[in-house]
Amino acid sequence: MSPTLDTVYRHSEDVISRFVEGELLIIPLVAGIGDMENDIFSMDETGKEIWTRLNGEKSAAVIIQELEEVFHAAPDVIRADVLGLLDELARRRLIIAVEKPV
């Protein structure tokens, strides 16, 4: 399921994320994450800003709004970027969509 503006994500327990010398490293904990089991994931500066906001509380819309203040870019560019990355992270099981309370 593709992410929407209302979707809230958190980091998966199946990966460990670490900042080492300013670089974000996402390391699989369990088998089956990524294309090959010995792969480490990383991200560019924009990706780091998005990853650190995936705390299980902020919706995609809130993250987009916050990034507009950080990067001063066109809203549609930021929106496409955030939703695109969330889709990629979710597809790779690095993040989990948080269920909305009933």
Partner: peptide
């Protein structure tokens, strides 16, 4: 943002 955010595999 100067470019699209990207996730990449590395070692």
């Amino acid at each position: 943002m100067k470019r699209a955010s990207s996730l990449y595999l590395t070692n």
